[in-house]
């Protein structure tokens, strides 16, 4: 575990000055970012973009988890990777590239799919970014983060549809968890592999995910409290939808009933 910083160095103050100028961030917010640990699950279109934005903004520690290797048809939307990276593990390429650019960021790598056997990897995380590409992984993250009361920021995109939601303990108690929106047994009707997707749309969603992550880590209020942002790129509709708890949710309902 990294030693917590109590003050910004002169170089950090200059490097992050444009962020520090923002009243919502300031020096305290920047220090919070530098002392934060974010786990990113999935280093595809969303994850590799969000990782770059978080590292550039000064998040102190990243743990990258993904089982996949770079493929040729990833390159239009996964801009951290190049032709020469094809067939290499995404997390190893991403870690190498990020270390070259942002040498103050501590980066851990796990080449493999996330499942409950890796629950310990989330234990000291301040935030988990769910950038995975399947519901099995998303549900495992929902179960583990709920049990560990770790904040989970999920985003997904396929074809022209996307969604984004931040699940933190207080918010889940009121508006439910990921399972309350997409219960166990949910089948995805669309995937990037079968339906296609535009790199610009993926980057938009990843940027929104990183934007919300940075606000959360710096200590700002959750602007998506109890909500889910749904994006329909076909009609350029961005809707904040209210979530509601499923009283029979097989993830959060039993534990929440015990608490109340």
């Amino acid at each position: 575990m990294r030693t917590k910083q109590n003050a910004l160095s002169d170089r950090q103050f200059i490097r992050y000055s444009k962020q520090i100028m923002l009243p919502a961030y300031g020096e305290r917010g920047q220090l919070n970012l530098l002392n934060s640990h974010v786990v990113i699950v999935g280093l595809g279109g969303l994850g590799q973009q969000a990782a770059q934005l978080l590292a550039a903004a000064g998040v102190g520690q990243l743990t990258l988890i993904d089982p996949d290797k770079v493929a040729l048809d990833n390159l239009p939307r996964q801009t951290l990777y190049r032709d020469s990276h094809i067939a290499q593990a995404k997390v190893l390429v991403a870690a190498r590239k990020l270390r070259q650019r942002y040498n103050e960021v501590a980066i851990n790598t796990i080449v493999g799919a996330f499942d409950e056997s890796k629950a310990h990897c989330l234990r000291d995380a301040d935030l988990v970014l769910d950038c995975s590409d399947n519901f099995a992984c998303r549900h495992a993250l929902s179960r583990v983060t709920f049990a560990q009361t770790t904040a989970l920021l999920s985003a997904a995109i396929s074809a022209e549809q996307a969604w984004l939601a931040l699940f933190v303990a207080e918010d889940v108690a009121e508006a439910g968890c990921l399972h309350c929106v997409f219960p166990t047994g949910t089948k995805t009707a669309q995937s990037c592999a079968s339906q296609g997707v535009m790199g610009s749309a993926v980057a938009t969603v990843a940027s929104l995910q990183a934007e919300l992550a940075l606000r959360h880590l710096s200590g700002q209020p959750n602007h998506l409290f109890g909500q889910l942002l749904h994006i329909d790129f076909t009609h350029w509709r961005f809707n904040k939808l209210r979530r509601s708890r499923d009283p029979v949710c097989n993830n959060c309902a039993t534990a929440l009933r015990k608490c109340s």
Partner: peptide, 9 residues
């Protein structure tokens, strides 16, 4: 509103 359960990343 009915929207697809997308999970891609």
């Amino acid at each position: 509103e009915i929207f697809s359960a997308v999970a891609g990343g």
